[in-house]
Design a protein around this nucleic acid. Structure first.
Lengths: 133, 133
DNA sequence: AACGTAATGTTATAATATAACATATTTTAA
DNA sequence: TTAAAATATGTTATATTATAACATTACGTT
Protein backbone atom coordinates (compact mmCIF):
# COMPACT_ATOMS: atom_id res chain seq x y z
CA UNK A 1 0.00 0.00 0.00
CA UNK A 2 2.20 2.80 -1.19
CA UNK A 3 0.16 5.83 -0.32
CA UNK A 4 3.45 7.44 0.57
CA UNK A 5 3.66 8.64 -2.99
CA UNK A 6 2.33 12.06 -2.25
CA UNK A 7 2.95 12.30 1.45
CA UNK A 8 5.43 14.92 2.45
CA UNK A 9 7.25 14.88 5.73
CA UNK A 10 7.10 17.76 8.15
CA UNK A 11 10.24 19.49 6.96
CA UNK A 12 9.41 18.93 3.33
CA UNK A 13 5.94 20.42 3.81
CA UNK A 14 7.34 23.36 5.73
CA UNK A 15 9.78 24.18 2.96
CA UNK A 16 7.18 23.68 0.24
CA UNK A 17 4.73 25.97 2.04
CA UNK A 18 7.29 28.75 2.13
CA UNK A 19 8.09 28.36 -1.54
CA UNK A 20 4.45 28.23 -2.58
CA UNK A 21 3.64 31.42 -0.76
CA UNK A 22 6.68 33.23 -2.08
CA UNK A 23 6.31 35.54 -5.05
CA UNK A 24 9.89 35.07 -6.19
CA UNK A 25 12.37 32.23 -6.13
CA UNK A 26 14.01 31.89 -2.75
CA UNK A 27 17.57 31.07 -1.83
CA UNK A 28 18.25 28.21 0.54
CA UNK A 29 19.35 30.41 3.41
CA UNK A 30 16.34 32.65 2.95
CA UNK A 31 14.19 29.54 3.31
CA UNK A 32 16.14 28.61 6.42
CA UNK A 33 15.53 32.05 7.89
CA UNK A 34 11.80 31.84 7.15
CA UNK A 35 11.41 28.35 8.55
CA UNK A 36 13.30 28.77 11.79
CA UNK A 37 10.11 29.63 13.59
CA UNK A 38 8.80 26.28 12.42
CA UNK A 39 11.57 24.21 13.86
CA UNK A 40 14.06 23.99 11.07
CA UNK A 41 17.42 24.86 12.49
CA UNK A 42 20.19 23.93 10.09
CA UNK A 43 20.96 24.43 6.39
CA UNK A 44 21.10 20.70 5.86
CA UNK A 45 17.49 20.32 6.84
CA UNK A 46 16.54 22.78 4.15
CA UNK A 47 18.76 21.23 1.52
CA UNK A 48 17.48 17.76 2.26
CA UNK A 49 13.89 18.88 1.96
CA UNK A 50 14.71 20.69 -1.27
CA UNK A 51 16.44 17.62 -2.70
CA UNK A 52 13.37 15.53 -2.13
CA UNK A 53 10.96 18.17 -3.41
CA UNK A 54 13.03 18.60 -6.54
CA UNK A 55 13.17 14.85 -7.01
CA UNK A 56 9.40 14.55 -6.98
CA UNK A 57 8.94 17.60 -9.19
CA UNK A 58 7.32 19.91 -6.66
CA UNK A 59 10.22 22.33 -6.71
CA UNK A 60 12.68 23.46 -9.34
CA UNK A 61 16.06 25.07 -8.98
CA UNK A 62 16.92 28.17 -10.96
CA UNK A 63 20.55 27.36 -11.55
CA UNK A 64 21.69 30.79 -12.60
CA UNK A 65 20.25 32.29 -9.44
CA UNK A 66 20.94 29.52 -6.92
CA UNK A 67 17.29 29.84 -6.08
CA UNK A 68 14.32 27.56 -5.68
CA UNK A 69 10.76 27.88 -6.85
CA UNK A 70 7.61 25.85 -6.32
CA UNK A 71 6.22 24.26 -9.44
CA UNK A 72 2.76 25.48 -10.37
CA UNK A 73 2.09 22.75 -12.87
CA UNK A 74 -0.10 19.76 -12.22
CA UNK A 75 2.49 17.23 -13.14
CA UNK A 76 6.16 17.96 -13.22
CA UNK A 77 6.51 14.55 -11.64
CA UNK A 78 9.62 13.78 -13.51
CA UNK A 79 11.42 16.61 -11.78
CA UNK A 80 13.62 16.88 -14.76
CA UNK A 81 13.17 19.35 -17.54
CA UNK A 82 12.54 22.99 -16.75
CA UNK A 83 12.06 26.18 -18.75
CA UNK A 84 11.89 29.58 -17.14
CA UNK A 85 11.26 33.14 -18.16
CA UNK A 86 13.15 35.49 -15.88
CA UNK A 87 12.43 39.21 -15.86
CA UNK A 88 15.60 41.28 -15.69
CA UNK A 89 13.76 44.22 -14.21
CA UNK A 90 11.55 42.76 -11.48
CA UNK A 91 13.07 39.28 -11.08
CA UNK A 92 9.70 37.66 -11.70
CA UNK A 93 10.14 34.05 -12.74
CA UNK A 94 7.51 32.11 -14.61
CA UNK A 95 7.66 28.62 -15.94
CA UNK A 96 7.26 28.27 -19.66
CA UNK A 97 4.24 26.07 -20.04
CA UNK A 98 4.66 25.14 -23.65
CA UNK A 99 6.52 21.90 -24.08
CA UNK A 100 9.83 22.55 -25.74
CA UNK A 101 11.39 19.17 -25.07
CA UNK A 102 10.56 17.77 -28.49
CA UNK A 103 12.27 20.71 -30.13
CA UNK A 104 15.41 20.12 -28.08
CA UNK A 105 15.22 16.45 -28.73
CA UNK A 106 15.31 17.11 -32.47
CA UNK A 107 18.08 19.68 -32.22
CA UNK A 108 20.14 17.25 -30.19
CA UNK A 109 19.55 14.37 -32.55
CA UNK A 110 21.00 16.43 -35.39
CA UNK A 111 24.38 16.20 -33.72
CA UNK A 112 23.82 12.61 -32.65
CA UNK A 113 23.18 13.48 -29.02
CA UNK A 114 20.45 11.61 -27.11
CA UNK A 115 18.31 14.16 -25.32
CA UNK A 116 17.39 13.27 -21.79
CA UNK A 117 16.37 16.51 -20.07
CA UNK A 118 17.13 20.21 -20.06
CA UNK A 119 17.31 23.38 -18.09
CA UNK A 120 16.39 26.58 -19.92
CA UNK A 121 16.61 30.05 -18.46
CA UNK A 122 15.39 32.84 -20.69
CA UNK A 123 16.10 36.40 -19.60
CA UNK A 124 14.14 39.40 -20.77
CA UNK A 125 11.39 41.81 -19.79
CA UNK A 126 8.03 40.61 -18.55
CA UNK A 127 4.75 42.03 -19.78
CA UNK A 128 4.17 43.98 -16.60
CA UNK A 129 7.50 45.75 -16.72
CA UNK A 130 7.07 46.47 -20.43
CA UNK A 131 3.80 48.21 -19.73
CA UNK A 132 5.15 50.30 -16.89
CA UNK A 133 8.31 51.57 -18.54
CA UNK B 1 43.91 53.93 -30.97
CA UNK B 2 41.84 51.37 -29.22
CA UNK B 3 43.67 48.20 -30.04
CA UNK B 4 42.87 47.16 -26.49
CA UNK B 5 39.72 45.57 -27.83
CA UNK B 6 41.24 42.14 -28.12
CA UNK B 7 44.16 42.51 -25.79
CA UNK B 8 43.99 40.31 -22.76
CA UNK B 9 45.93 41.04 -19.64
CA UNK B 10 48.34 38.58 -18.13
CA UNK B 11 45.88 37.00 -15.71
CA UNK B 12 43.12 36.90 -18.27
CA UNK B 13 45.38 35.17 -20.78
CA UNK B 14 46.60 32.71 -18.17
CA UNK B 15 43.06 31.71 -17.27
CA UNK B 16 41.97 31.51 -20.89
CA UNK B 17 44.95 29.31 -21.77
CA UNK B 18 44.00 26.84 -19.06
CA UNK B 19 40.40 26.72 -20.19
CA UNK B 20 41.30 26.33 -23.86
CA UNK B 21 43.57 23.41 -23.16
CA UNK B 22 41.06 21.72 -20.86
CA UNK B 23 38.89 18.95 -22.21
CA UNK B 24 36.10 19.58 -19.76
CA UNK B 25 34.66 22.63 -18.07
CA UNK B 26 36.74 23.67 -15.08
CA UNK B 27 35.70 24.98 -11.71
CA UNK B 28 37.14 28.22 -10.46
CA UNK B 29 39.27 26.63 -7.77
CA UNK B 30 40.58 24.06 -10.23
CA UNK B 31 41.66 26.95 -12.41
CA UNK B 32 43.29 28.55 -9.40
CA UNK B 33 45.19 25.36 -8.65
CA UNK B 34 46.37 25.08 -12.24
CA UNK B 35 47.48 28.67 -12.49
CA UNK B 36 49.35 28.97 -9.25
CA UNK B 37 52.58 28.09 -10.99
CA UNK B 38 51.92 31.06 -13.23
CA UNK B 39 51.63 33.61 -10.51
CA UNK B 40 47.93 33.62 -9.73
CA UNK B 41 47.56 33.33 -5.99
CA UNK B 42 44.04 34.14 -4.91
CA UNK B 43 40.50 33.15 -5.94
CA UNK B 44 39.64 36.73 -6.69
CA UNK B 45 42.25 36.91 -9.41
CA UNK B 46 40.61 33.96 -11.11
CA UNK B 47 37.09 35.29 -10.71
CA UNK B 48 38.08 38.70 -12.03
CA UNK B 49 39.69 37.19 -15.07
CA UNK B 50 36.65 34.98 -15.62
CA UNK B 51 34.28 37.93 -15.32
CA UNK B 52 36.11 39.77 -18.03
CA UNK B 53 36.45 36.75 -20.29
CA UNK B 54 32.75 36.03 -19.94
CA UNK B 55 31.94 39.67 -20.65
CA UNK B 56 33.81 39.59 -23.94
CA UNK B 57 32.41 36.20 -24.89
CA UNK B 58 35.61 34.16 -24.70
CA UNK B 59 34.34 32.05 -21.83
CA UNK B 60 30.94 30.76 -20.77
CA UNK B 61 29.73 29.58 -17.42
CA UNK B 62 27.86 26.28 -17.12
CA UNK B 63 25.49 27.35 -14.41
CA UNK B 64 24.33 23.91 -13.36
CA UNK B 65 27.90 22.80 -12.85
CA UNK B 66 29.48 26.00 -11.50
CA UNK B 67 32.05 25.46 -14.18
CA UNK B 68 33.65 27.50 -16.92
CA UNK B 69 34.46 26.63 -20.51
CA UNK B 70 36.30 28.41 -23.31
CA UNK B 71 34.14 29.34 -26.27
CA UNK B 72 35.17 27.65 -29.50
CA UNK B 73 33.10 29.89 -31.72
CA UNK B 74 34.49 32.72 -33.76
CA UNK B 75 32.18 35.30 -32.37
CA UNK B 76 30.33 34.94 -29.15
CA UNK B 77 31.24 38.58 -28.61
CA UNK B 78 28.01 39.33 -26.96
CA UNK B 79 28.81 36.99 -24.13
CA UNK B 80 25.14 36.49 -23.62
CA UNK B 81 23.21 33.55 -24.93
CA UNK B 82 24.55 30.06 -24.51
CA UNK B 83 23.37 26.56 -25.37
CA UNK B 84 25.15 23.46 -24.20
CA UNK B 85 24.90 19.72 -24.65
CA UNK B 86 26.16 17.98 -21.54
CA UNK B 87 26.87 14.25 -21.55
CA UNK B 88 25.64 12.54 -18.41
CA UNK B 89 28.09 9.71 -18.82
CA UNK B 90 31.43 11.36 -19.63
CA UNK B 91 30.69 15.00 -18.71
CA UNK B 92 31.67 16.16 -22.16
CA UNK B 93 30.24 19.59 -22.87
CA UNK B 94 29.74 20.94 -26.36
CA UNK B 95 28.19 24.18 -27.44
CA UNK B 96 25.15 23.88 -29.61
CA UNK B 97 26.12 25.71 -32.78
CA UNK B 98 22.71 26.09 -34.28
CA UNK B 99 21.13 29.37 -33.39
CA UNK B 100 18.10 28.80 -31.23
CA UNK B 101 17.57 32.38 -30.11
CA UNK B 102 14.92 33.12 -32.68
CA UNK B 103 12.91 30.13 -31.52
CA UNK B 104 13.05 31.32 -27.93
CA UNK B 105 12.24 34.82 -29.00
CA UNK B 106 9.04 33.57 -30.63
CA UNK B 107 8.12 31.34 -27.71
CA UNK B 108 8.62 34.25 -25.33
CA UNK B 109 6.61 36.65 -27.44
CA UNK B 110 3.63 34.31 -27.22
CA UNK B 111 3.36 35.11 -23.54
CA UNK B 112 4.23 38.76 -24.09
CA UNK B 113 7.76 38.42 -22.75
CA UNK B 114 10.59 40.30 -24.48
CA UNK B 115 13.42 37.89 -25.06
CA UNK B 116 16.85 39.24 -24.31
CA UNK B 117 19.13 36.26 -23.84
CA UNK B 118 19.14 32.70 -22.59
CA UNK B 119 21.06 29.89 -21.00
CA UNK B 120 20.23 26.38 -22.14
CA UNK B 121 21.71 23.24 -20.69
CA UNK B 122 20.65 20.01 -22.36
CA UNK B 123 21.57 16.75 -20.63
CA UNK B 124 21.81 13.43 -22.40
CA UNK B 125 24.24 10.96 -23.92
CA UNK B 126 26.87 12.01 -26.42
CA UNK B 127 27.57 10.11 -29.61
CA UNK B 128 30.77 8.66 -28.27
CA UNK B 129 29.18 7.21 -25.17
CA UNK B 130 26.27 5.88 -27.20
CA UNK B 131 28.67 3.99 -29.40
CA UNK B 132 30.64 2.52 -26.52
CA UNK B 133 27.77 1.30 -24.42
C1' DA C 1 53.68 64.43 -17.69
C1' DA C 2 49.10 64.14 -15.48
C1' DC C 3 44.79 62.33 -15.29
C1' DG C 4 41.32 58.76 -15.42
C1' DT C 5 40.35 54.04 -16.01
C1' DA C 6 41.14 49.36 -15.59
C1' DA C 7 43.75 45.64 -13.66
C1' DT C 8 46.33 43.74 -9.82
C1' DG C 9 47.58 41.95 -5.17
C1' DT C 10 46.13 40.72 -0.69
C1' DT C 11 43.47 39.70 3.36
C1' DA C 12 39.29 38.73 5.12
C1' DT C 13 34.73 37.11 4.90
C1' DA C 14 30.17 36.07 2.83
C1' DA C 15 27.17 32.80 0.59
C1' DT C 16 26.17 28.20 -0.94
C1' DA C 17 26.33 23.34 -0.07
C1' DT C 18 27.81 18.75 1.79
C1' DA C 19 30.20 15.16 5.09
C1' DA C 20 29.75 12.40 8.92
C1' DC C 21 27.43 10.29 12.47
C1' DA C 22 23.93 9.32 15.91
C1' DT C 23 19.01 8.83 16.41
C1' DA C 24 14.24 8.42 15.28
C1' DT C 25 10.45 7.34 12.33
C1' DT C 26 8.03 4.89 8.70
C1' DT C 27 7.44 1.01 5.41
C1' DT C 28 7.79 -3.48 4.09
C1' DA C 29 7.41 -8.03 4.44
C1' DA C 30 8.24 -12.62 7.11
C1' DT D 1 3.06 -7.74 14.83
C1' DT D 2 7.30 -7.27 15.01
C1' DA D 3 12.02 -7.30 13.09
C1' DA D 4 14.63 -5.67 9.26
C1' DA D 5 15.23 -2.22 5.81
C1' DA D 6 14.67 2.16 4.21
C1' DT D 7 13.90 6.91 4.89
C1' DA D 8 14.00 11.12 7.48
C1' DT D 9 15.80 13.86 11.30
C1' DG D 10 18.96 16.52 14.33
C1' DT D 11 23.42 18.33 15.00
C1' DT D 12 28.16 19.78 14.48
C1' DA D 13 31.65 20.62 11.58
C1' DT D 14 33.54 21.65 7.25
C1' DA D 15 33.90 22.01 2.20
C1' DT D 16 32.99 24.74 -1.84
C1' DT D 17 31.92 28.84 -4.38
C1' DA D 18 32.13 33.73 -4.61
C1' DT D 19 32.60 38.67 -3.19
C1' DA D 20 33.92 42.95 -0.12
C1' DA D 21 37.22 46.23 0.89
C1' DC D 22 41.24 48.66 0.21
C1' DA D 23 45.89 49.77 -1.22
C1' DT D 24 48.75 49.70 -5.30
C1' DT D 25 50.23 49.35 -10.06
C1' DA D 26 50.00 49.62 -15.06
C1' DC D 27 48.15 51.74 -19.08
C1' DG D 28 45.69 54.56 -22.53
C1' DT D 29 44.37 59.14 -23.43
C1' DT D 30 44.97 63.86 -23.80
Amino acid sequence: MSEALNTLTKNQQTVLDILESAKEPLKAYAILFDTQKKGIKAPLQVYRALDKLIEIGKVHKIESKNSYIACKHKSCDAGTSTSFLICEMCDLVTELKKNVSSYFSKQSAEVNFSYSKHNLEIYGICSNCKRNN
